[in-house]
């Protein structure tokens, strides 16, 4: 009986998800189907024969759901370029440009002569087609995948980011700027407890890459609200990224490296926040 109620509850919710309905409908559908499931699973009330038919029907429905689910997650996982590959600006990022140049050089070495610009054009055209085709293919199943937590293509560590960024925070007191935080720095550790947490690493990576301006500005405001309390004498706070090229093994051994460039600077006055 309990299992029947659970199946009814989940089926109601999944049915509503599949139809992409919003608001209270999935919850109402779940609670409406829970007692129905409980009732139908109770053999004494519906009789052995009906129960057996329902059990078979339940198995067929579960089988169909499983097959559909496996097809949907397989389609979702098919290799594809990241959605941002449609945008021309992404191809001029130094990490992406480095990859294109590396491949153009390799293809030329293999006898398929091409320049980085030609290769970029071909790849961007192909990526745009692939992204649009994938979006059209997934459109019918996306609401379902989103609601059951399976909306995921597995783009993991596809290429190293040769130009990563480190968040830096400075406060201005008596006209002098002081660096109080730098990502992964052992002593510049103001607010490092939340900012160095794993859950903040992904946002900081994204905002250091570029774009997502309103979220980056939101983070600047959050930093300012904290700084206004922790540095009562400060007049301004500045959040920025230091972007640098990671050192090759030979550069590390020679003690050389890229000093980095400051970018995406946000300077916020603290007085209005007190």
């Amino acid at each position: 009986m309990g299992d029947g109620a659970a199946i009814g509850f989940v089926a109601g919710c999944v049915g509503a998800f599949a139809l992409d309905v919003h608001g209270w409908t999935p919850v109402l559908a779940a609670f409406a189907l829970a007692p129905v499931g409980a009732l139908l699973s109770h053999r004494a009330q519906v009789g052995d024969e009906v129960a057996s038919h329902l059990k078979r029907l339940g198995k067929v429905a579960l089988g169909a759901l499983l097959v559909g689910h496996m097809l949907a997650v397989t389609a979702m996982a098919l290799p594809s370029p990241p959605t941002v590959a449609k945008y021309r600006s992404e191809w001029s990022k130094p990490t992406v440009r480095g990859e294109v140049e590396g491949w153009a050089e390799r293809l030329t070495r293999w006898g398929f002569e091409t320049s980085p610009d030609e290769l970029e054009q071909t790849l961007r055209r192909g990526a745009t087609r692939a992204i649009d085709g994938r979006a059209a293919m997934l459109e019918p199943v996306l609401p379902y995948l989103k609601r059951v937590g399976a909306r995921q293509g597995w783009h993991m560590f596809l290429a190293p980011n040769r130009y990563p960024s480190k968040l830096q925070i400075l406060v201005r007191e008596k006209g002098t700027w002081t660096l109080v935080y730098e990502a992964r720095h052992p002593t510049l550790d103001w607010a490092s407890r939340p900012l160095d947490h794993e859950r903040f690493r992904s946002p900081l990576y994204r905002y250091g890459w570029g774009g997502r301006t309103s979220s980056w500005e939101g983070l600047g405001d959050w930093i300012a609200r904290r700084a206004a309390v922790d540095f009562p004498a400060a007049t301004h706070v500045q959040a920025r990224f230091k972007r640098y090229r990671t050192r090759s093994p030979s550069e590390v051994k020679a003690g050389a490296g890229d000093p980095g460039k400051r970018r995406r600077k946000l300077t916020i006055p603290l007085e209005p926040l007190r």
Partner: peptide, 27 residues
């Protein structure tokens, strides 16, 4: 599928195979 998408010239055999080294340099 994640392996099939690791197309960086630092990953694919025939290059410098420096992908893990550089990934581990990212803060």
């Amino acid at each position: 599928t994640t392996g099939l998408q690791k197309l960086s010239h630092h990953w694919v055999p025939g290059g410098d195979l420096a992908a893990l080294y550089y990934i581990l340099q990212q803060p």
